[in-house]
Simulated scan of single mutants.
Amino acid sequence: MQLRYNYRVYPTPCQQVSLAQAFGCARVVFNDGLRLRQQAHEAGLPYISDGDLSKQVITEAKKTPRSGMVE
C-alpha cells in the first residue's frame, strides 16, 4: 500500500523572492551543464561525468560575484 500526501504552501512575499532566486539559480546551473554536455557531444568528446560537470559549472559559478541578488 502506498500513501500519498498533498501539501500546499503559502510563502510570504519575502519567501517568494528567495524561492524564485533559488529556483532561478538551479535552472541556470542545469542549463549550463546541459549546454556543456551538448557541446562535448557535438565535438565528439567523451561524456562529461557528473563530478567533472560539478567542477566546471558549480565550482566556477561560486567564484562569480553575486549580482542582482536581494538579501
Rank of each mutant, 00 (worst) to 15 (best):
residue 21 Q to F: 10
residue 55 K to T: 14
residue 62 K to N: 13
residue 15 Q to I: 06
residue 50 D to W: 12
residue 4 R to S: 14
residue 15 Q to C: 11
residue 17 V to T: 15
residue 36 L to I: 04
residue 45 L to D: 13
residue 2 Q to M: 07
residue 71 E to I: 11
residue 4 R to W: 08
residue 25 C to Y: 02
residue 26 A to S: 10
residue 11 P to V: 09
residue 10 Y to M: 07
residue 9 V to T: 14
residue 65 P to M: 03
residue 53 L to K: 06
residue 39 Q to S: 09
residue 6 N to K: 15
residue 67 S to E: 13
residue 57 V to T: 02
residue 13 P to Y: 03
residue 45 L to S: 09
residue 55 K to R: 15
residue 12 T to D: 12
residue 57 V to L: 02
residue 67 S to W: 03
residue 55 K to I: 09
residue 40 A to K: 04
residue 11 P to W: 08
residue 34 L to S: 13
residue 69 M to F: 10
residue 58 I to Y: 09
residue 3 L to T: 12
residue 63 K to S: 09
residue 71 E to M: 03
residue 61 A to I: 01
residue 16 Q to H: 01
residue 21 Q to G: 00
residue 64 T to Q: 15
residue 13 P to E: 13
residue 53 L to Y: 04
residue 6 N to G: 12
residue 21 Q to C: 02
residue 71 E to K: 10
residue 30 F to E: 07
residue 43 A to N: 12
residue 36 L to K: 11
residue 39 Q to F: 00
residue 25 C to S: 11
residue 69 M to G: 03
residue 38 Q to N: 15
residue 47 Y to C: 00
residue 33 G to W: 07
residue 38 Q to C: 03
residue 59 T to M: 12
residue 23 F to A: 07
residue 50 D to H: 10
residue 66 R to D: 04
residue 5 Y to F: 14
residue 68 G to Q: 02
residue 54 S to M: 06
residue 14 C to S: 15
residue 63 K to G: 04
residue 51 G to K: 15
residue 14 C to L: 14
residue 2 Q to I: 15
residue 41 H to M: 05
residue 32 D to V: 02
residue 36 L to H: 07
residue 6 N to H: 12
residue 26 A to H: 05
residue 40 A to T: 03
residue 62 K to W: 05
residue 70 V to C: 06
residue 62 K to I: 02
residue 19 L to E: 07
residue 25 C to E: 12
residue 45 L to Y: 02
residue 18 S to W: 05
residue 65 P to C: 02
residue 14 C to P: 00
residue 50 D to V: 11
residue 8 R to W: 10
residue 63 K to A: 13
residue 37 R to M: 10
residue 60 E to G: 01
residue 55 K to C: 08
residue 17 V to N: 00
residue 54 S to V: 01
residue 61 A to F: 09
residue 33 G to P: 05
residue 28 V to N: 06
residue 36 L to V: 01
residue 5 Y to K: 05
residue 40 A to P: 03
residue 9 V to K: 00
residue 50 D to I: 09
residue 49 S to F: 03
residue 45 L to R: 14
residue 60 E to D: 07
residue 8 R to T: 15
residue 15 Q to P: 00
residue 63 K to H: 05
residue 10 Y to N: 13
residue 22 A to H: 03
residue 69 M to H: 07
residue 52 D to L: 11
residue 52 D to K: 13
residue 25 C to H: 09
residue 65 P to Q: 04
residue 60 E to M: 02
residue 45 L to T: 00
residue 4 R to M: 10
residue 30 F to V: 02
residue 32 D to C: 11
residue 69 M to K: 09
residue 48 I to K: 01
residue 15 Q to L: 14
residue 10 Y to I: 12
residue 49 S to E: 12
